[in-house]
Computed example of a mutant assay.
Amino acid sequence: MEKKAKIYIAGHRGMVGSAIHRKLQALGYDNLLLRTSGELDLRNQQAVADFFAAEQPEYVFLAAAKVGGIWANNTLRADFLYENLAIQNNVIHQAYVQGVKKLMFLGSSCIYPKLAPQPIKEEYLLTGLLEPTNEPYAIAKIAGIKLCEAYHDQYGCNFISVMPTNLYGYRDNYHPEHSHVLPALIRRFHEAKTANQPVVTVWGSGTPRREFLFADDLADACVFLMENYDNPSLINIGMGEDLSIKELAMLVKSVVGYEGELVFDRSKPDGTPRKLMDVSKLHKLGWRHTTPLEAGIRMVYDDFVANCANQ
């Protein structure tokens, strides 16, 4: 990407989009095209068409999506399916219509089968049943991957799809019910510490294993792939390492400095038993993460205390 190229970051205020924004700015890209959801509703087909026709972006990072944790995914099923389909359909199609040089579509590791062999290779897509609690979001993301592939195959568009593992970072969602597991734990332990509560309850058994990547590392990988990867076949982005939810909870507990008891509510859903990405394809291209999990959690906890704890 040329330093003066017009680059549209869809979803620039979210955790992933803001990380991509910071990375591009740090690298000297200064012709960045940004719109809030209030300024541009990506679910509105005509609004997106008018925007692309007027602005003519050369590169697009499609990081905008309706996202949430197990509870939100399982409860707002129609919203997650409809809104994500609408957002990606509108942006991807207009990127084709207006001749965008390259588009990156950001998916999610939840696209893979619930019981996929571990670690999860890219070719395991559509080889088994999805995890039911986040099926609508996963189906939307799978449709986005296939849409990018189809525009490449039919029209020659340079549209690529990347599949990040579980993410955490600045500007994460710390909602007590709608957030993902790591930010939910940060909030829960912090509030328990502040209120001197003797016990913190964690959803599920604690046995599922998850992989977590710092969002700023993801942004670095996204820019790297925008420069070095032109294949329509999806590519995983992750650390290649995982830990149990119990181990994660103990790590967050330590970072926050909470000294009470930890218990697990086995009546709550666990989700997929294990979700570890095979990142050998990415490693062969020459990219690896640089932020250890504990160091990353300490950075985002400091940010949470400074900016989010009273929200």
Results as ranks from 00 to 15, higher is better:
Glu177Asp: 04
Tyr8Glu: 04
Ser244Thr: 15
Leu62Ile: 07
Pro273Asp: 06
Ala47Thr: 07
Ala53His: 15
Asp217Gly: 00
Ala184Thr: 10
Asp216Asn: 12
Arg188Asn: 14
Ala249Gly: 04
Leu27Tyr: 01
Ile237Arg: 03
Ala65Arg: 08
Tyr137Pro: 03
Ile92Met: 10
Ala221Asp: 02
Ile186Gln: 03
Asn158Cys: 11
Ser254Pro: 03
Val279Gly: 04
Ala116Trp: 06
His175Phe: 08
Phe224Val: 01
Leu85Phe: 12
Cys308Thr: 12
Ala184Gln: 09
Glu191Gly: 00
Ala192Leu: 02
Ser267Leu: 15
Glu39Phe: 13
Val48Phe: 01
Tyr29Trp: 15
Gln118Ser: 10
Lys6Phe: 13
Val263Ala: 00
Trp287Leu: 09
Gly260Trp: 03
Asp270Thr: 05
His93Asp: 09
Asp242Lys: 09
Cys308Val: 13
Leu27Arg: 08
Asn166Ser: 12
Met1Thr: 11
Met299Gln: 15
Trp287Ser: 11
Glu259Ser: 00
Asn236Tyr: 06
Asn134Arg: 09
Ile235Gly: 11
Ala184Ser: 14
Thr291Trp: 02
Phe51Cys: 09
Ser37Met: 10
Glu83Pro: 01
Ala19Trp: 05
Gly38Arg: 12
Ile145Cys: 09
Phe264Ile: 01
Asp303Lys: 13
Pro119Leu: 10
Gly260Ile: 01
Ala306Gly: 10
Pro273Trp: 04
Met1Leu: 15
His289Thr: 12
Lys275Asp: 14
His190Ser: 07
Lys114Asn: 14
Val263Gly: 01
Arg13Lys: 15
Gln46Leu: 13
Thr165Met: 02
Asn236Asp: 10
Cys148Ala: 11
Thr75Gln: 15
Leu103Arg: 00
Arg298Gly: 09
Glu39Ala: 14
Asn89Pro: 04
Arg210Phe: 12
Lys121Val: 10
Ala215Glu: 07
Leu262Tyr: 06
Pro57Asn: 05
Cys222Ala: 15
Ile9Leu: 12
Ile139Asp: 01
Gly128Gln: 07
Arg43Pro: 01
